[in-house]
Simulated assay, not measured.
Amino acid sequence: MVELPADAVLVCIDMQTGFDSPVYGERNNPDMESKVAELLATWRENERPVVHIRHDSQEPDSPLRSDKDGFAWKTEAVPEDGELVLTKNVNSGFIGTGLEEWLREHGYSTLVVCGLTTDHCVSTTTRMAENLGFDVYLVADATATFEREGVEGESFTADEMHRTALAHLNGEFAEVVVLADVFGDC
């Protein structure tokens, strides 16, 4: 079990319906949404701070554009009144959102990160959080990603991408944990 301060902030990244689009290919961790829902329920029950960040893509054909249906929240992660909602246009939840300022203004120093996608926005936000001096816990089973094509045309499964991204972050930018590790303290 990890020892989280009572004011550890749950940061839910890009929990948007647009990621259900077949354009992204095969995804790992089909239970990710239920894990995020469990985290949210526990945070809310314990009146801990929650931040929701979503992506407003600037790409014309992206399902994550604010003028597309895919911009909507997944039903498992709809923000509630009083929870901070931020919109980003790049991979990092810290760029152009006011997230760092809000965290510092409230004296928060520990983040618990979940959402989509492990190797893009989750990774970038996690890296920046650590670089800015925050303590970060990344919940591996409450994140997911998609298959990718390499620079030489090789294929990488979603699970390979997920595990590789977690390996890059663990111990350097975050402590990678699983849901059961987090629930021991809530």
Rank of each mutant, 00 (worst) to 15 (best):
D159W: 11
V122Y: 01
R148C: 08
V176S: 01
V151M: 10
S62M: 07
A144I: 02
E101L: 10
G107L: 05
V136C: 00
L86N: 08
N28F: 07
D67V: 13
N91M: 09
I95L: 15
V11R: 03
L103D: 01
Q58K: 14
A174N: 00
F134M: 00
R148N: 10
V85E: 15
C12W: 01
T17W: 01
G98R: 12
K88L: 03
R163S: 15
V113F: 02
G107A: 06
P5T: 00
G171F: 05
D69N: 08
G150P: 10
V51L: 06
P63K: 12
T157R: 12
S57Q: 06
L4S: 00
W73M: 09
L4D: 00
H55F: 09
D67Y: 10
W43G: 00
V2E: 01
E3D: 14
L86K: 13
T87E: 14
L84Y: 04
A37Y: 06
V151K: 08
G96C: 04
L103K: 03
G82D: 09
A174W: 02
L84R: 12
G115N: 06
D56G: 14
E76A: 15
V136D: 02
G93H: 04
T143G: 08
H120G: 07
E175Y: 09
Y108F: 15
A77W: 01
L4R: 02
A77M: 06
F173D: 01
Y24N: 10
N131S: 13
V151W: 05
G133C: 00
K35Y: 12
Y108W: 14
A41R: 06
V176A: 00
A180P: 03
A167I: 11
L179S: 11
V113L: 04
G133S: 03
P79S: 11
E47I: 07
D135I: 12
S34D: 15
K88Q: 08
V122A: 03
L99P: 10
V139I: 13
I95E: 12
V113T: 14
G115K: 01
H162N: 13
V139R: 05
C12Q: 09
H162F: 02
N46Y: 13
N170R: 09
S21Q: 03
H168G: 13
D61W: 15
A144G: 12
V122D: 01
T118I: 05
A41W: 05
F156M: 08
E83D: 07
R148T: 15
E47V: 07
C121V: 09
Q58H: 11
G184I: 05
T145D: 04
P30I: 13
F183S: 11
T125G: 04
K68E: 08
E26W: 04
V9G: 01
M161W: 02
D185G: 13
I13S: 00
R48P: 04
H106N: 12
F156S: 12
T145H: 06
T17Q: 14
S123L: 07
